[in-house]
Simulated scan of single mutants.
Amino acid sequence: MLNGIPIKPHGRFMKLDIQEIETFLRVAELGSVSLAAQQLGVAKSVVSKRLSDLERHLGAKLLFRSTRKVAPTDSGQRFYQQAKAALAELRSAAEAVAFEDGSLAGRLRILAPMSFGTLWLAPRLAEFMRQHPQLELALQLDDRVSDFEREGYDLCLRISRLHDSALIARRLGSSPRVVCCSPDYIREHGAPERLEQLLEHPCIGYCNLSAGQLWSFDDPADAQRPLTLAPGGRFTSNNGEAMRDAALAGLGVAVLPRFIVQHDLQAGRLVQVLAEARPTDDEICALYPRARRASLKVQTLCDFLQRALANESWAGP
């Protein structure tokens, strides 16, 4: 562990402590001394002292402090951008030397969707940790779209059709979806036989994003312009497992990822309808900031997850 970086500004030497810099980065990202202390596992007084020491060493005010929020000054913002990139490069260099044998150590914070995390990701992460016994993982499951970099995550997994120029997305695989409902629903209401007939059926909607109320299907005549429908229904949710449960209860027709409904389809608890209509696949992506390269830990985990997805019967290429 490096204790500090000697620098000589304006004719005087000073020593920058890596721990102080990392603490400043976390406070700047979270906008809160309390939250930073909680994530770092130290007292607020320790965080405050590290910040004060860093400002004293630099001879510059880095943060505006109020009773509500902490925000970087102009100097603090410049220091944040360069220090974050520099520390990322330093970690990558250290990892490349320290773990030449392929082992991994340290802490990795991951943000992932709720259903994907509980049904598929968590068991794979447990296997990954068994392969790397010195590695620590912190997994946060949340379907919301967040500024994961500012919240201190090393990696964010998303399942969507992502278009975000501020992030680097590594595609790990695809998540095919299926139109389905329960056998009881079909006995009571009949099954839709054409795509447009979905507008005549109660449908179960995903409400985490406004675009979730639009169902998108591949158009065999034009791959670049999918067919879209805006079905209605009595039940919406921001969680795929809750949507599956509503479909099992016969509340309507749903478009759901195969990783959520594969066992119910195999057991006959749900039935695929409109088999000829192909809902547009979502992409399973690993995201990390464009401003820095992925660390060795992130790269190794992404390689592992990509191989695991390639072996799943429900996943697309």
Results as ranks from 00 to 15, higher is better:
81 Q>G: 09
152 G>E: 02
49 K>C: 05
43 A>M: 05
119 L>E: 12
156 C>R: 11
166 A>C: 05
11 G>T: 06
230 A>F: 05
301 L>F: 00
32 S>M: 07
205 G>F: 02
11 G>Y: 04
167 L>N: 14
153 Y>P: 03
110 I>H: 06
177 R>S: 09
259 F>Q: 03
35 L>Y: 05
249 A>T: 03
95 E>A: 14
111 L>I: 12
115 S>C: 11
60 A>Y: 06
188 E>V: 09
28 A>H: 03
21 I>Q: 06
272 Q>I: 04
153 Y>V: 04
19 Q>N: 15
81 Q>P: 00
95 E>N: 13
306 Q>T: 12
60 A>S: 13
235 F>Y: 11
9 P>V: 04
110 I>D: 00
231 P>M: 11
11 G>H: 13
22 E>F: 03
314 W>R: 04
137 L>P: 01
241 E>V: 09
135 L>E: 02
34 S>N: 11
242 A>L: 13
20 E>H: 15
267 A>I: 00
280 T>A: 12
11 G>P: 09
67 T>S: 13
61 K>P: 04
65 R>D: 06
46 V>G: 03
200 E>D: 15
45 S>D: 11
46 V>I: 11
177 R>A: 08
234 R>M: 10
155 L>V: 06
263 H>V: 02
279 P>R: 02
290 R>P: 05
161 R>G: 10
49 K>F: 13
130 R>P: 00
305 L>S: 05
59 G>S: 08
144 R>A: 14
163 H>W: 12
148 F>Q: 05
292 R>Y: 12
277 A>E: 14
317 P>Q: 15
118 T>I: 06
315 A>S: 15
18 I>R: 07
192 P>E: 08
50 R>Q: 12
60 A>K: 10
16 L>G: 11
